[in-house]
Design a protein around this nucleic acid. Structure first.
Lengths: 109, 109
DNA sequence: CAGACGTACTACATCTGATAAAGTAATATT
DNA sequence: AATATTACTTTATCAGATGTAGTACGTCTG
């Protein structure tokens, strides 16, 4: 089981990474994450939407009404230029963090 | 400069990793972290001590009075068997998390 | 030997992101 | 019209990080 604490602050990055490929909406984003991680990481519904709202508030994504499948119409999200920049910055930060923490992680004992 | 928020949940692991080598006390642990990361990561004083208190409360470390250098006597910390187990579990968790998140991190764009 | 100084913490308040529980909204189906 | 389905929103709570400030204990200096 994956600790959500270490991913804290990276849920936004995960979502942006998917939106780089194509516009998407809540349920599909959630599904993509599950599939990309072989069901290892399932982002909670409230975590997903609070991340989405934060991203939109920060100007990293924009939304537009989409088509209907069954039920309430979907809201699609598209990454913005600021979102791309933020994504790149977070990727760089992640690489630094990863290398740094690896100093304290031992393969075997 | 790395934000400790990124490492949230792994500050405990970092401290345990240092205590695997030798017993230590607050100030020295802090210094070791700085040195091991080439000053890239400087754990805040309050973060350090709150992590230490949490570790002790959870039974992952024990403390004993040490000698004096100048000022208040040091409290030394020693990792327990439970602490070793916890450390190993966190290392395993970290490897999983690292691989998982790497799916969403792109080297270049 | 009193007061300044240094080391080693502790207390308290605040912030952010994750998340549980529950509710709302819009549309299709029966 | 009632129910089901999909797509969210609202509200409240929690933990870990961190800023600000203060305390405790010892040495050093005049």
């Amino acid at each position: 089981m994956i600790s959500s604490d270490v991913l804290r602050g990276y849920n936004d990055t995960i979502i942006l990474s998917l939106l780089l490929d194509e516009d998407s909406y809540g349920y599909q984003i959630s599904k993509s994450i599950r599939e990309a991680t072989n069901e290892q990481y399932v982002m909670k519904e409230t975590t997903l939407y609070s991340a989405i709202n934060r991203l939109e508030k920060n100007g990293y994504i924009t939304s537009y009404a989409g088509d209907i499948s069954m039920g309430k119409p979907r809201t699609y999200f598209r990454i913005t230029d600021d979102g791309r920049k933020y994504y790149q910055a977070k990727c760089a930060e992640w690489r630094l963090t990863k290398d740094m923490l690896s100093v304290f992680i031992r393969e075997e004992m």
